[in-house]
Computed example of a mutant assay.
Amino acid sequence: MGENIDYQGGTGYFAASGQENAPGVVVIQEWWGVQDQIRSVCDQYAAAGFDALAPDLYSGVVVPYHDKAAAAREMEALDFLSATDRQVSAAAAFLARPGRKLGLTGFCLGGIVSILGAIRLDDFAAVSCYYGLPDLDQGLPEQVRLPVIGHFALDDTWCTPEMVDAYEAGLKRAGKDYVFYRYACDHGFFNPDIPEFHSEYAKLAWSRDLEFWSRHLKPAEPTS
C-alpha cells in the first residue's frame, strides 16, 4: 500500500515497488480527483515492479462518484496546460533517478493530460492514455513526440469514437509511434468503483500496458 506525500512542487499518492532499479510511472487522476481507484492503480503498479505517483491536480478535492456536476466543475476549472507543465513535471522530478525511465498514464481528464505530456514534456519515455484526448487548440496529434498507447470505449459519449478516429488519423498522417485500442464498452471501464467498469477489458488493457512499458521503460543496457 502507498501513502499520501508532499514533495517539491506538489502533493500526491505514492506507491513504492521496493525494487532498486524499478521504472517509474506518473498516474493522472480522473475528473473525480485522486480517488481510491487512482490509489489502487498506483498500488497495482507497485506490485508489478514500478514506483508510481499520482499527483493531486485538485489540491485535496475528491469528488464523490455520484456528483458528476461537481466533477465537471473541478475539471473545467483546471488549467490543463499549467497542470501538465508544473504538477506533472514536478511528479516526474520526484521519481527521477539516474538511468530510470518514466512512463505517464492517465484516465479521463488524465488521458488528456497524458497526451499533453507526450507533446510538452521531456521527462517521459512513453505514454498510456485512457479515454481522454486534448482539444486541438491544446495539442495537435502531429506535435506528439513520444510513443503512445491509447485505450478507448466505443460507447463513450464524452471522448467519442469520432474524436478518437480523428486524432488517430492525425497521428497516422504524421508518422507517429502509437497504437490505439477500442473496447466495446463505456467510458470509465477501467474503474472498478463505478457501474461502467468492465473487468475483462480492464484486464486486457492492463496487460497491454505492461507489455508496452516492458518495451519502453526497460533500463538501458550497460555499455562495455
Rank of each mutant, 00 (worst) to 15 (best):
H216D: 05
N191I: 01
D6F: 08
G150C: 06
Y181D: 04
A153K: 05
C159I: 07
V113I: 15
W213F: 06
D156M: 02
V88K: 03
Y130H: 01
P219R: 11
V164Q: 03
F197P: 02
G111F: 01
L109Q: 14
V127A: 04
N191H: 01
Y201Q: 06
A93Q: 13
Q8S: 12
H187C: 01
A69R: 15
H66I: 05
G188W: 00
H187I: 02
N21R: 10
A69H: 11
R73L: 15
L102Y: 00
W206M: 14
A96L: 12
Q87C: 07
Y201G: 00
Q29E: 14
S59Q: 14
P64V: 10
I38L: 10
E162Y: 01
P219Y: 03
S114N: 02
Q44A: 12
A96W: 07
Y7V: 02
K218H: 09
V113G: 13
V148K: 04
P161Y: 01
R97I: 10
L102W: 02
N191M: 03
P64W: 03
D56I: 10
Q35G: 07
E142L: 10
C129F: 04
P134I: 11
L102P: 00
G170P: 12
V62T: 13
K218M: 12
Y131S: 05
Q143F: 00
L78C: 06
A93F: 00
G2F: 09
L204V: 08
G110T: 08
Y130M: 02
F94C: 13
P219V: 05
Q44C: 08
Q87A: 13
A126Y: 02
G10F: 03
V34P: 01
R97Y: 04
W213D: 07
A46E: 02
Y65L: 13
N4F: 09
D137N: 14
D51W: 02
H216K: 13
S199V: 11
A90E: 04
